[in-house]
Design a protein around this nucleic acid. Structure first.
Length: 527
RNA sequence: GGUCCCAUCGUCUAGUGGUUAGGACAUCAGGUUUUCAUCCUGGAAACAGGGGUUCAAUUCCCCUUGGGACUACCA
């Protein structure tokens, strides 16, 4: 029975690398029909942060990595919070002491510091010098009677070579003499990671320890502990690290590392999971699709395909994946809704990833338009000031004109649609375009003709009709499309770049459009 | 310093004892479009170096170089 666990420390936030570790544990468990547990490793009293445990659970839940056992979801081997299991660790530390696999150490922090400084100065590996291992029984009893504080240290058999097989790295071995006598039980009677981890993994029947590569050097200590207890060690899989741009371990100093940061930036769960899954893993073979849902990840995951080398966390690719997922989620939602409205709706993929929905009935089309734009509003609601949201019907038209941009990055939406809400002053040169053969004269002629046309256009509520009207202007003047549409778009938006002339005129409405055209014409008169 | 791990385009990666070393992101060029974006087409871009083993190594082995992790009464 496969049982994996994610065992974070509640230090205030969940690291994105931690989320990936959780994901791999989850994928492996689900793939093999096993169980995935969450265990909170809060044995460091000094680092405890109020609310951090709940925060971790919230983040794991957000990601949809439902755990089978853990805090608030008790199984047979709880509790799942280490601070509630201290008696168990103490019992086992003393058991080791009795069996001769550990010893009391009374060394003060000062002595330890001094010892290390000397070792470093002599260019030796800093390691505990076993001063207390050689204390006589009398000396120990005397210290205990005095009430001297002590820790319990692991007694590493220095002659041994510790070997183990890592599922990702293959055979790994460490010489016993390079392994430090690790503190197992601190003077406050709390265990260190090493003891608590081994004891819990054993009693929680963990079959596979899947954790970050930074734990590889302490694995021999853990193996030795399993041996000292007479337990069978679990399988180990040390996954590659997530890296900063400079290839150092991904850290706070060089950008956002907490999952919450990415949620706040608007990344969707599918995108974030998809992205981090592929940092250090690939299904292999001829697989060229890179968009995988959680379910597809489960089906395709295998430890053999996990890489050995670390991977740089490249946010640009994340942005791209996020956009792809936004598109997919959006159109899946719309397709479902469109079919609910009319089972015979005609849905076409206009271009890769973008669809059109055509209804025969105009009422259905209107109902669908509302659903579609509600979704867009929902997507960028948080990034819009109240005044932009006051006229909802206008906002719908505006947002549909920048639909793809919202899908790509809803955070920047405000700057994309600013021009709809204010008549910004602009240079009349904006109305001209050399490559399209639009000079001041052409611009003026076009705008005059458009004004006349618009004034006589009764139904300004149909983008299609506005388009037809404008094409008539093009034909009448004998101009190319761009010679009419560029000055119009520029006049309406005052921007170098914007949505097209038809949809802007439509979203703006008849009077505001005419107002802006007149303003442009006044500019041109000055010339 | 010591121990251990790692090494294919800028980045994420596929891949094999014999391949024109493939894809994606990013980038550049061209095209469609009323501008931007989208979309389409195309380009540039990698097996760290040196020794072996072999008829043949990017692939297997060794060394070098480079990078990283660990080196706490933190996890």
């Amino acid at each position: 029975m496969v049982r994996t666990r994610f065992a974070p420390s509640p230090t205030g936030y969940l690291h994105i690398g931690g989320l990936r570790t959780a994901l791999y544990n989850y994928l492996y468990a689900r793939k093999h029909g096993g169980k995935f547990l969450l265990r909170i490793e809060d044995t460091d009293q000094k680092r405890y942060v109020e609310g951090a445990t709940q925060h971790i659970i919230d983040m794991i839940n957000w990601a949809g990595l439902d755990f089978d056992e853990g805090p608030g979801k008790e199984g047979d081997v709880g509790p799942y919070i280490q601070s509630e299991r201290t008696a168990l660790y103490q019992k086992h530390a003393y058991e080791l002491l009795e069996k001769g696999h550990a010893y009391r150490c009374f060394c003060t922090a000062e002595r330890l510091d001094e010892m290390r400084n000397t070792q470093v100065a002599q260019k030796k590996a800093p390691m505990y010098d076993r001063h207390c291992l050689y204390l006589s029984e009398e000396e120990i009893q005397k210290k205990l009677a005095e009430g001297a504080p002590f820790v319990i240290r692991q007694k590493v058999p220095s002659g041994d070579v510790v070997k183990f097989k890592d599922l990702i790295r293959g055979n790994v071995s460490f010489s016993g003499k390079t392994i430090d006598d690790q503190v197992l039980l601190k003077s406050d009677e709390f265990p260190t990671y090493h003891l608590a981890n081994v004891v819990d993994d054993h009693y929680m029947n963990i079959s596979h320890v899947i954790r970050g590569e930074e734990w590889l050097p302490s694995t021999p200590k853990h193996i030795l502990l399993y041996q000292a207890f007479g337990w069978t060690p679990p399988e180990f899989a040390h996954i590659p690290l997530l890296l900063n741009k400079d290839r150092s371990k991904l850290s706070k100093r060089q950008g956002d590392v907490s999952v919450e940061d990415y949620i706040n930036k608007g990344y969707t769960r599918e995108a974030l999971l998809n992205f981090i899954a592929f940092l250090g893993w690939h299904p292999g073979g001829a697989q060229e699709n890179e968009l995988f849902s959680l379910e597809e990840l489960i089906n395709n995951f295998s430890m053999e395909k996990v890489h050995k080398a670390g991977a740089i966390f490249d946010i640009e690719k994340l942005d791209w994946i996020n956009w792809q997922w936004n598109r997919r989620n959006y159109h899946e939602y719309l397709t479902k809704k469109a079919k609910e409205i009319d089972a015979n709706v005609n849905i076409e993929e206009l271009k890769k990833g973008a669809f059109s929905y055509n209804f025969n009935d105009t009422n259905n089309a209107a109902a669908f338009f509302e659903i579609r734009t509600n979704k867009l509003i929902e997507m960028c609601e948080e990034n819009l000031p109240a005044e932009m949201k006051s006229n909802k019907e206008k906002l719908r038209k505006i947002l549909i004109s920048v639909e793809e941009k919202i899908l790509r990055d809803s955070k920047e939406i405000k700057s994309q649609i600013d021009f709809y809400f204010e008549d910004k002053p602009y240079e009349k040169d904006l109305l001209t375009h050399e490559k399209m053969n639009v000079d001041l004269e052409v611009a003026k002629n076009s705008l005059l003709a458009i004004r006349e046309k618009f004034e006589s256009l009764d139904d300004f509520n149909s983008e299609e009709k506005i388009k037809n009207a404008l094409m008539e202007v093009v034909e009448k003047l004998g101009y190319k499309n761009g010679q009419v549409l560029w000055p119009l778009r520029a006049a309406l938006t005052g921007e170098q770049f914007s949505p097209g002339a038809f949809e802007v005129a439509w979203a703006l409405g008849k009077e505001p459009s005419l107002g802006r055209i007149n303003k442009a014409l006044i500019e041109l008169e000055k010339a």
